[in-house]
């Protein structure tokens, strides 16, 4: 009896745990993790940017570590845990980083945002109260052409404070500019 999960001819098949859910996916062997996430798993939150390793917008977490999904072959990810921006919210409850990015205007056009969110999430899991310099270093591989980065740094700092249980609010100056 044929298995229901028999892979189609000419395709490769791997197992991934995507945003906590065990998943099997079949695809052409020359596809990148980015392409498999977007095209075969329908997870289009991960963005397709430069394809050169320069912009960081395709960042996902692979076994908890930020990597560029455009420079990873999907076949090389067999058996690994993948986390994309779709996995950050819990139901209707946003991740604190998503909330602070939205509140502080740390996302404008939004194309770079999924990458920044995931890198920031990995940072805060490793280092719950990073300094501004540590944040800058962790986010160095991600380009944003809208915000000038300042609001992104502030959003990470605010999320870090809230995740530590502080009742932190955005600075007036961040929200409304200097008066």
């Amino acid at each position: 009896m044929a298995s229901r999960r028999r892979k189609p001819a000419g395709k490769a098949q791997i197992s991934l745990v995507v945003n906590g859910e065990p998943t099997e996916v079949a695809f052409s062997p020359h596809k990148t993790l980015l392409e498999v996430l977007r095209e075969d798993l329908g997870l289009t939150g991960t963005k397709h940017g430069c394809e050169l390793g320069e912009c960081g917008t395709c960042t996902v977490l692979l076994d908890g570590q930020p990597v560029l999904s455009c420079l990873a072959l999907a076949l090389a990810c067999d058996g690994k845990r993948v986390e994309t921006v779709e996995g950050m919210a819990r139901g209707a409850v946003l991740h604190p980083l998503q909330e602070t990015f939205a509140d502080l205007g740390a996302a404008q056009c939004g194309y770079c945002t999924p990458g920044f969110l995931l890198v920031a999430k990995a940072l805060l899991e490793e280092n719950p109260s990073p300094t501004r310099d540590q944040i800058k270093q962790a986010l160095a591989g991600n380009l944003c052409r809208c915000t000038g980065y300042l609001k992104i740094y502030e959003a990470v700092e605010l999320a870090a404070a809230r995740m530590q249980g502080e009742e932190a609010e955005a600075k007036e100056e961040t929200l409304y500019g200097r008066r």
Partner: peptide, 9 residues
């Protein structure tokens, strides 16, 4: 060398 993501890969 390179960016944090590329250093992980």
């Amino acid at each position: 060398l390179a960016s944090p993501q590329l250093r992980n890969q």
